[in-house]
Computed example of a mutant assay.
Amino acid sequence: MSVATVSVTSSAPSIDILIPAIEKDLATLPYVIDSLRKYVQHPISNIYIVSPNNSRIRQLCSRKSCVFVNETTVLPFTKKAIRYSSTRWNRSGWLYQQLLKMNGDHICREKYFLVIDADTVLIRPHRFRSGGKSIFYCRNWSQPEYFRTYRKLLGAAASAPKSCVTHYMLFESAKLASLKRTIEARHGMSWHAAVIRSINKKRQFGFSEFETYANYVYSGNRTAVLLKNAKNKSLKIPAGSLTQSQIQKYAGSYRSLSFHQRKGYSTPGKP
């Protein structure tokens, strides 16, 4: 994947970017970082990589001028404290990563910060604020448990007309902090304890940080939100195998590509 730079919109606010990652994400993470600098139409202050204390990820942060954040400093507990599994699956790490994202307001310094998955590469220009409104990228797919947990947490049904589980989302720190305070006031405990307690742990997909935040913001003032089709494409090939002409072809129909490789493509991508 070659990298150029798109123009930054002068009226767009500066943002930080937060990317949770583990070692297997080194196959795609360099391309994710490059695509953010190429296609995000906001001034980027810092890109924070939240990860276990991994030397290879630290080296990548150094090469790519990103800020490494040890994930054990973000929450008052580690992944080992979460028990969310069955004899057939284990979602403890998946849930832990979502809780890390939800504490991004304690990491990022800008008023707005973009969270993106470490396996999703932008291939077209993206803007996340326009005319004083936040832009949420959406699709018509979600998990019923996400909405059941949302109702348990906030005492109301989710109101957004589409799903916002689309691999990246712009958070406003003040609104994220308000969401967490609201959860704490309603449940009489820390927001993360309330999330963990509210999940039906017999089901695999019990919570979505993106769905929860987007619906909280939308329910507060839907006129302050713009919804756009995410147009994401999932591919089962290494990110580094795509040629520029292939990327341009995909960009005719899609905004981003996700490389959800659970196994097999753990070789680090080229810087």
Rank of each mutant, 00 (worst) to 15 (best):
V74E: 02
L114I: 05
R124E: 12
S142L: 09
L176H: 05
R83L: 13
L153T: 03
T149G: 08
H106G: 12
F171K: 04
Y168A: 06
C164S: 12
A177D: 13
G131S: 11
H126R: 14
T166D: 03
A156I: 13
A158H: 01
N103E: 14
F136I: 00
S86R: 08
L170I: 11
Q98P: 06
H167Y: 13
E145G: 10
F147L: 12
I82E: 04
F147M: 09
E172A: 09
C108N: 01
H167G: 05
D119V: 00
H106Q: 14
S163C: 14
I135L: 06
I183P: 04
N70P: 05
S86F: 09
Y96W: 08
G155R: 03
R88F: 13
K101L: 10
M102R: 03
P144W: 10
F77A: 11
D119A: 05
E172H: 07
K162N: 14
S142F: 06
E110M: 12
T182P: 08
L179K: 03
L153R: 01
A177M: 12
P76G: 10
Y168K: 06
W191A: 05
V115S: 11
L176P: 00
D119F: 02
S86V: 09
H192S: 13
N70V: 04
A177Y: 03
L114N: 03
V165S: 11
C164N: 12
D119Q: 03
F68H: 07
S86Q: 11
L179Q: 01
K79G: 06
K101C: 02
R83S: 15
I135R: 04
L75I: 08
T73M: 08
R91E: 12
L179E: 02
I107G: 02
N90R: 01
H187R: 09
C108V: 03
W94H: 10
A185W: 07
Y112I: 09
A158G: 07
D117Q: 07
N90C: 08
F147W: 12
I116Y: 01
N90E: 10
V69M: 00
D117S: 06
H126Y: 12
Y150E: 07
T87Y: 12
N90F: 04
C138K: 04
K152D: 11
A185N: 15
R83Y: 14
Y168C: 07
V121N: 03
S134K: 10
Y84Q: 10
L100D: 01
V74W: 00
T73V: 11
A177P: 06
V74K: 01
Q143N: 14
R151S: 13
W141Y: 13
A158V: 06
R83H: 15
Q143R: 15
D117G: 02
H126T: 10
I107N: 03
